[in-house]
Computed example of a mutant assay.
Amino acid sequence: MKIGILTAAMILAMPTLAFAKDKCADAQDQATMNQCADASFKQSDKKLNDLYKQVQGRLKDDADTKKLFIQAQRNWVKFRDAECSFQTAEAAGGSVMPMLVSMCMDGLTKSRIKDLQGYLNCQEGDQNCPVPAAN
Rank of each mutant, 00 (worst) to 15 (best):
Cys36Tyr: 02
Ala25Gln: 05
Phe86Trp: 12
Gly118Gln: 01
Arg74Glu: 12
Glu124Arg: 13
Ala20Trp: 01
Glu124Leu: 14
Val77Asn: 11
Cys84His: 02
Asp115Pro: 07
Gly107Val: 06
Leu51Ser: 02
Lys21Leu: 01
Met103Trp: 12
Gly57Pro: 00
Phe69Lys: 04
Gln30Ser: 02
Cys24Arg: 00
Ser44Phe: 06
Gln56Gly: 02
Ala92Lys: 14
Lys67Cys: 03
Val55Pro: 02
Tyr52Arg: 10
Val101Lys: 09
Met97Gly: 11
Gln117Val: 08
Gly107Ile: 08
Gln87Glu: 12
Asp50Gln: 06
Ala27Thr: 05
Arg112Ser: 00
Leu120Glu: 07
Leu120Asn: 07
Met97Glu: 15
Lys23Pro: 00
Asp62Pro: 00
Gly57Ser: 01
Met103Leu: 12
Ser40Arg: 15
Leu48Phe: 01
Gly118Glu: 00
Cys84Tyr: 04
Ala91Ile: 06
Arg112Ile: 02
Gln127Met: 15
Gln54His: 11
Gln127Pro: 08
Gly118Ser: 01
Asn34Glu: 00
Gly93Pro: 13
Tyr119Gln: 07
Arg80His: 08
Leu59Val: 02
Asp50Glu: 15
Gln54Ser: 09
Ser102Ala: 15
Asp50Tyr: 04
Lys21Gln: 03
Leu116Val: 05
Gln71Lys: 15
Lys67Trp: 08
Ala89Gln: 13
Leu51Pro: 05
Phe69His: 01
Arg74Ile: 10
Leu108Gln: 03
Arg58Asp: 03
Arg80Gln: 12
Asp81Glu: 11
Asn121Lys: 15
Ser40Asp: 13
Arg74Tyr: 08
Gln56Arg: 06
Gln73Gly: 09
Glu83Phe: 07
Arg74Met: 11
Asp115Trp: 01
Thr65Ser: 05
Asp106Met: 09
Asp62Ser: 07
Ala89Arg: 11
Gly125Cys: 06
Asp50Trp: 06
Ser85Lys: 11
Gln127Gly: 12
